[in-house]
Design a protein around this nucleic acid. Structure first.
Lengths: 220, 220
DNA sequence: CGCGGCATTGACATTGATCAAAAGCTGTGG
DNA sequence: CCACAGCTTTTGATCAATGTCAATGCCGCG
């Protein structure tokens, strides 16, 4: 739940790096479970991780955020336990950092603390956008939002390709948007017919960002 | 978008206090507008403020968070401008703090930085709960969630009364939950008939928190 | 007393969920 | 290389939940 990319890649990264511990997971693995005692958080090196909330009794689950290479996950904690679940949507590589030691370091280096604040603030903005989309948009608008969102995420991280791998199944998209997989499927169809997005294997191409945002009646 | 209650009430609060500047707003006033150049954020002394998102072109608005006495609002910023709007749901009193000076101070006092992280993390958890509620629950469950949520908020801040003032109109509740005011009205009716909540003037009483949460199929 | 704002209630329309079936795809083993 | 099993996706036919529109009721305030 945190992306330390910016200011963290500074001098003291070495010291920090010393406590990073690379690990791997396969698609569908769980990086950490909500309620498990937390010791480390993770900085993703490759792959996509879903932050999922299980605050509802019955099976229902909500994907609260998507994290890709460069982002951190598993930072949020309640009473020493993970607040959410980290679920690998693809094969994933990440560095594990001891939260305790990280906090100690952050007390020494204000830059690090500032980066943490920055990362949390950005996560907060993102989640707030999601609430807005889910609360206010109708199904196809939501799906349009989803693609423009993902597009922006990849663009910000990896520059200007209009294509990126769609790591989520229909049903995963559904539980990110609060819809059913059938509705998602139909909506995706509509967007494709309108020539806003296109598929090639597991790659999505956003053909017209402007139109996509406008369709979602969402600001970019 | 931040609640500095905890660690902030420490020694250096004096220094900080020196830059706090008390102000008042009437119900329905706007504390700050999304997109306006940001200079200060606010620590609420009394009243209730809605953080509202206007990322959608047409009129639709989503209340992204509720903030009461003790919380901070207006901390989130994008390119030097407020990300969201702060809207007074009641008459409000708050202290304005210069963001610039606050940041400078946070660089000196690690405790302050830590408190900021803490506050943002807590806001993030709260918003994630909201996404989950809005994405997964049906109308009456959502309304139940709303009351249990508000109940918890007041309880955490002001101790153990089961009653608190309902600062929001049906239509405001609606735009917090992504529903229409009519649906909210009907759902409130149902909850009242079931004896889970009761009204007396502008005061709500939660008669049975357990049952309320269970009804929302939401963990407390 | 009557007006203006909010809340409630009702009738009806629409969206999206649900249930069910068919169509693609992928990998495995004959 | 083909056939088939086990997926996910697409498509279709209903149905229920919620939005929409409209009327009425309630209450405080001028």
């Amino acid at each position: 739940m945190l992306n330390l990319c910016g200011a963290l890649d500074d001098g003291q990264l070495l010291e920090l790096g010393a406590l990073g511990n690379r690990r791997r997971w396969r698609k569908r693995d769980i990086l950490f479970r909500a309620g498990d005692p937390m010791s480390a958080f993770f900085k993703i090196t490759s792959g996509v991780v879903a932050v999922v909330s299980r605050t509802i009794d019955d099976g229902r689950r909500q994907i609260v955020a998507l994290r890709i290479a460069g982002d951190c996950v598993g930072y949020l904690e309640t009473e020493g336990r993970y607040t959410f679940e980290g679920y690998a949507l693809t094969d994933v590589e990440a560095c594990a950092f001891s939260r305790r030691r990280f906090d100690a370091l952050a007390r020494q280096y204000p830059v690090l603390a500032a980066a943490t604040v920055e990362a949390l603030a950005s996560a907060q903005k993102q989640t707030a956008r999601s609430v807005t989309a889910i609360g206010q948009l109708r199904s196809t608008e939501r799906v349009a939002y989803f693609f423009s969102d993902l597009h922006a995420l990849y663009r910000e991280r990896f520059g200007d390709s209009e294509s990126f791998p769609l790591a989520l199944s229909r049903s995963e998209i559904a539980s990110y948007l609060g819809l059913t997989l059938e509705t998602v499927s139909r909506s995706v169809g509509k967007l494709r017919k309108r020539g806003l997005i296109a598929f090639a294997g597991d790659q999505v191409t956003v053909l017209d960002v402007e139109a996509l945002c406008e369709f979602a009646s969402f600001e970019p």
